[in-house]
Write a protein that binds this DNA or RNA. Structure first.
Lengths: 189, 189
DNA sequence: ATAGAATCGGAGTTGTGACTCCGATTGAAC
DNA sequence: GTTCAATCGGAGTCACAACTCCGATTCTAT
């Protein structure tokens, strides 16, 4: 389908630099940030941005795709390396922490939901699997209530990210997060 | 400060109609919806929109202000009419329900946080008081964990709205909401 | 070192949306 | 019914952001 001749060295550099800068800028200024701003910060011309990403939407999709991929990796790592309970809650905290710096996961997942050009669906699926494993292991271990699925977990991650972002100071955040964590535990009754 | 001569009948009508339509349109299309669209749907010229609300931001502020006011009223009503526990959880569910139709509260509170021109601060304070009463009564009644304040409650309302909005189908929503409700209850330990 | 294909830069185009201005209209006071 | 100030409508202005185009530049294969 795609002959995909390897990119010239400078092109490859620019592409990577653009992705990195775009991620920062979108995180800092929101997805409304202008492509020109990104080009300037990356030290390239606007033309270069649009050659690599034919559309602003495509650039956004690429950035979110990267986020989802990294998130999936992290979930798999934790799944393999830690006890089910800590792995699960560690991942939850990690996502929420990122979000408190900048609402990464919510945007990313949302974008995946909208699914720009269908690009993200594959990765989104992978992430879903990783989340599923994390969740099910924690449930079998009795660390997390049994009546939740991956869909609920995603919603909760989005909600927690948002809540924690909204809560300004660290103490409010901690107390807010505690509600989520306690709510996730098996019901005592 | 403001002589505030009463508006002419047609002006008053237009102003109200604009607010109503703007609320609908912003809810449906997001806050990025154009003023022209709102004018068209309200059946007035663009000039009329800008005479009543000198800025799109001012229009947004007015809409959000209305939402916050109604929310505060509702909280006070419940506070007066129902048992502490049901009053609290009823309000929580109510906010979340609205949000699932369209993310009303999150946007409204967020806007209040940004506080366009300081207009919302008064009402936001009132809402805060109403929430405080709802919360404290429920806590004294033992229906809600004691380690939460109004700040945490607001964050949780925002987060829950978002989470439930993200969760597509009603069943996922219910299970997601259950995590919040259980997390809000006093910790058994 | 050289050719020439790939890539770059950024001025220019296009579209959109907030906001202004003023002649036309309409409500209210008499 | 007349008057006139308040209000209206919407064409026009202005700013900004996405996207295009092409001459200038740079990489790479020989």
């Amino acid at each position: 389908m795609t002959p995909d001749r390897p990119l010239r060295a400078d092109a490859r550099r620019n592409r990577e630099r653009l992705l990195a800068v775009a991620e920062e800028v979108f995180a800092a200024r929101g997805t409304g940030a202008s492509t020109e701003e990104i080009a300037r910060q990356a030290g390239v011309g606007i033309g270069t941005v649009f050659r690599h990403f034919p559309t602003k939407e495509a650039l956004l999709a690429a950035v979110f795709l990267g986020r989802l991929e990294r998130l999936g990796e992290r979930a798999r790592e934790l799944s393999a390396a830690a006890e089910p309970g800590p792995a699960f809650f560690g991942f939850f905290a990690l996502v929420v922490d990122q979000a408190s710096a900048k609402n990464a996961f919510a945007d990313a997942l949302e974008q995946a939901g909208v699914d720009v050009e269908g690009v993200t669906s594959g990765v989104s699926g992978q992430l879903g699997e990783a989340l599923g494993e994390l969740l099910h292991r924690a449930q079998e271990d009795g660390a997390v209530r049994a009546d939740l699925g991956v869909a609920e977990l995603k919603a909760l991650l989005v909600g927690a990210s948002r809540a924690v972002e909204f809560a300004g100071d660290p103490e409010t955040r901690a107390r807010t997060l505690a509600v989520f964590l306690d709510g996730l535990r098996p019901t005592s009754g």
